[in-house]
Design a binder for these strands. Structure first.
Lengths: 132, 132
DNA sequence: CGTTACATTTACGTTAACGTCAAGCACTCT
DNA sequence: AGAGTGCTTGACGTTAACGTAAATGTAACG
């Protein structure tokens, strides 16, 4: 357990991760990050950086912050609990299913919209009818 | 010509299109629909139904109500104006580009998430690191 | 000591598309 | 007349993930 003492200020974090100070404070308020304090100032640890990486990755996957917080909490409490590991997988699989459903809908909409554009008439005709 | 009794109450509309009364009133407030009145009550015309169809279709395409209102307005004003027709196509093409970009991102996220699940270790390892 | 440069907390603002009351009219049936 | 049903108009509430502004602090520089 190398206790590397690499603490970063809020600005260094912002530059490193391309987020705003508001975002980091918001994540702390939501209990996703737990920076240390130097008097009044925040100092972000290696752990905070690891968590932030996962937060940002989770967002790319489309997880809500609340989802992410729950997942992080599970492992904070007990990193070796198998049931909780399964719970995380479950969340991930659920989310994956959502994403694939979303992609299917998107594909359908794209196909439909392309067809309208190619037909070049249907949409216009529809609109004329709508205008009476 | 069959002068079909084509006026519908708000409830008939809701049943026919699977929307709530609130939604129809909201669309009227946003000037997307213009139902007639029988005293105080709304009566939706054939035109309203055609417009509503297009609104719902537009939503499936991911257009905002404001986008849809603008498109509908163009054709209300002058259905034969070629410049406005082109403007509509332009909006549609822009939206199509957005949707394809969105699909690309989604594909990437799905691939990434699947990889994590398949690896079965990376995510857990990452979370352990985050928990310190 | 004054200014500059960051930092902090507090708290209201933003956006879309409705949801959810509350209070009351209009009509019909009994 | 009273009850029931359906419709109406307000008008505030909801959700996520921050943005933005105000008032204040504090630390180093010159």
């Amino acid at each position: 357990m190398t206790m590397t003492n690499d603490l970063m200020t809020i600005r260094q974090m912002c530059d490193a991760f391309d987020v705003t100070p508001r975002t980091l404070r918001f994540y702390e308020a939501k209990e996703l990050l737990f920076p240390q304090r130097d008097g009044t100032r925040r100092l972000f640890t290696r752990s905070d950086r690891a968590r932030l990486k996962l937060i940002l990755r989770g967002k790319r996957f489309g997880f809500s912050l609340e989802d992410i917080r729950q997942i992080l909490d599970l492992y904070d409490r007990d990193g070796s609990n198998h049931a909780q590991t399964l719970r995380t997988y479950d969340l991930a699989r659920q989310r994956l299913a959502q994403m694939e459903a979303q992609r299917a809908e998107l594909d359908e909409a794209i196909t439909e919209l392309k067809a309208e554009l190619d037909a070049g008439e249907a949409m216009i005709a529809g609109l004329r009818r709508a205008a009476e």
